[in-house]
Write a protein that binds this DNA or RNA. Structure first.
Length: 96
DNA sequence: TTCATGACGGGGA
DNA sequence: ATCCCCGCCATGA
């Protein structure tokens, strides 16, 4: 991007400041940068700019306290489950 | 400008 | 309690 938005920069700075041993949720990050409701934007920033800015992206998790899957993965898993395919965590169960 | 996409979240079924 | 759907904000084609 040519000129990063203030919100983008604030988000980068905040995430970068998360200390070791602490985690925040996407929603909390959004609130802390005064942009409540843009949790999805936070995830977008992490996925697109973590490398460039050396962000501790692993310290940001979802509100359920879990590791987030990409939407495509969530959709695919849901579709397969609906068709009766059995999952063991994130991999197919080997036995019928 | 509209349209689709994304490491999300809350509220209804 | 879990699951699904839809709204949310910003971005890029």
């Amino acid at each position: 991007m040519k000129s990063p938005s203030p919100l983008f920069l604030r988000t980068i700075a905040l995430v970068k400041a998360i200390p070791k041993g602490k985690v925040l949720t996407y929603g909390e990050v959004a609130n802390l940068v005064n942009s409540p409701g843009s949790a999805r934007y936070v995830s977008y920033i992490l996925s697109s700019s973590s490398k460039k800015y050396g962000l501790p992206w692993h310290r940001v998790i979802n509100a359920k306290g879990e590791i987030s899957e990409h939407l495509a993965q969530q959709r695919q898993k849901r579709l397969l489950v609906k068709e009766g395919v059995v999952f063991d965590f994130n991999k197919l169960s080997l036995d019928a």
